[in-house]
Amino acid sequence: MMSRRCADTLRDVAFVGAALLDVRVNVSLDDPLRMGAALAAACLLLLRRRWPLFVFLFTLPAVLFSDAVVACLAALYTLATFTRRRTLLAACVMAFTLSDMVSWPRLDLWNTAAVITLGYTAATAAAVVFLGQLVQARRDLSLRLAEISLARDHERRLTAQAALAQERAELAREMHDVVSHQVSLIAVRAGALQVGTGDAEAKDAAATIRRLSVQTLDELRHMVNVLRDSQGRPTELTPQPSLADLRRLVDASGIDTELATDLPGGLPSALQRAVYRTVQEALTNVRKHAPGATATVRASYQGDAVRVTVSNTAPTRPALPLPSSHYGLVGLRQRAALLGGTVTSGPTADGGYELLLELPVEEEL
């Protein structure tokens, strides 16, 4: 915006300067009437964009009384860049031509030289008008191209949103028809096992499986509703976990786990979620890859950082071959990196495994 304003100011200065030079060359100081008309016309160019027709009309006396024509031609050019009335422009060309041809106070147009000069003057004024119309057309074309570009961007966004909506609908259908169905079967079979078995340990395991299956079904139903929301309205996600949910997570993990934490409750919500998801993923890995192992979760706040350690002993029986995407630790590292922290992991000397999460905390906490 500022650059355009500066360019317009420089253009005004250039036009006024050219008009004053024209006055200096073609008007004598001995004729105050002509000098006044020419200087007034040059100064009026400062108003040419605000009132182009007014400025053109009031620069005509300079052409009528003197040979200073630059100010009037500049005003005619400006008028041509703003108006779309071709009849008005033709009348202005004729007015400039006749004013320039008048030999004040005596008019003499009835000779060959006058006719040639008339044609030359009319051609000059017409060329200025054509140039102004060309600038106007170029400006209109630029605006039209900008509108087309915006329309194409909008169309691309709509296409992308339509494709995304279709993918979300397909994903929701698959989750509902396949995943939810299979989890429901797991919950039903776990309930039957819980009722039918007399073994206390097996009954407790079946109850845990059934509870987790029901919880998973609730979360799946909510995710399906989120994916099926095609109206663009914001949809409330399931409540995000916090540090207060760590104990329940550990108790429901099915692993003999010791939890020791002194983290304050005023930590940022993003940091609390990172701690929870890290412990959740670590315990899931223990359950999958180290059956029979015990785990220890220690979380502490050390002045300017949160330090969470999840370790487990060596497994007591072989791990079952379960499917894995191998993205769990990668996702934890990415989440920690977004918060300015790190995640490191590796085997321990006793055959177990340890995962360490370190996250910085703002000083005002």
Rank of each mutant, 00 (worst) to 15 (best):
P315E: 04
A163T: 15
S99F: 00
L145F: 11
T87I: 14
T344N: 13
L220C: 07
L158K: 15
R11G: 08
G303K: 02
N312R: 07
A192F: 06
V27M: 04
T309S: 14
P318D: 04
D30T: 15
E363P: 02
Q194R: 13
M94T: 14
N225H: 13
K203S: 15
V16L: 07
T159V: 13
G191S: 09
S345I: 08
N26V: 08
A42P: 06
A270K: 10
G196H: 02
Y353C: 10
F58M: 13
E174G: 09
L143F: 14
E219N: 11
I255H: 03
D199V: 14
G292P: 00
A187V: 03
N111W: 05
L47S: 07
V69A: 10
I209H: 03
Q334G: 01
A205E: 15
R144M: 13
V297S: 07
D8Q: 14
L171Y: 03
R211T: 12
A90T: 11
L64N: 00
R48C: 10
T216G: 10
A123R: 01
T294A: 11
A90K: 06
L283T: 05
R48S: 10
V70P: 04
S99C: 13
R307G: 06
R4M: 09
Q215K: 10
E364K: 05
R156V: 14
G328F: 02
V115A: 15
A337C: 03
G292A: 01
V70N: 04
L53K: 03
R233C: 11
R317C: 05
R84T: 14
L357G: 07
F58N: 08
V13P: 01
Q161Y: 08
A202E: 14
P268K: 03
V16N: 01
V188K: 11
P105I: 01
A162E: 15
T83G: 02
F58E: 02
S103W: 06
I255V: 10
D199F: 08
L53R: 08
V297A: 08
M1L: 12
P105T: 03
R34I: 00
A299S: 09
A160R: 14
L171Q: 10
A71N: 00
A260W: 06
L107K: 00
I209K: 02
A205R: 14
P241T: 07
E236K: 08
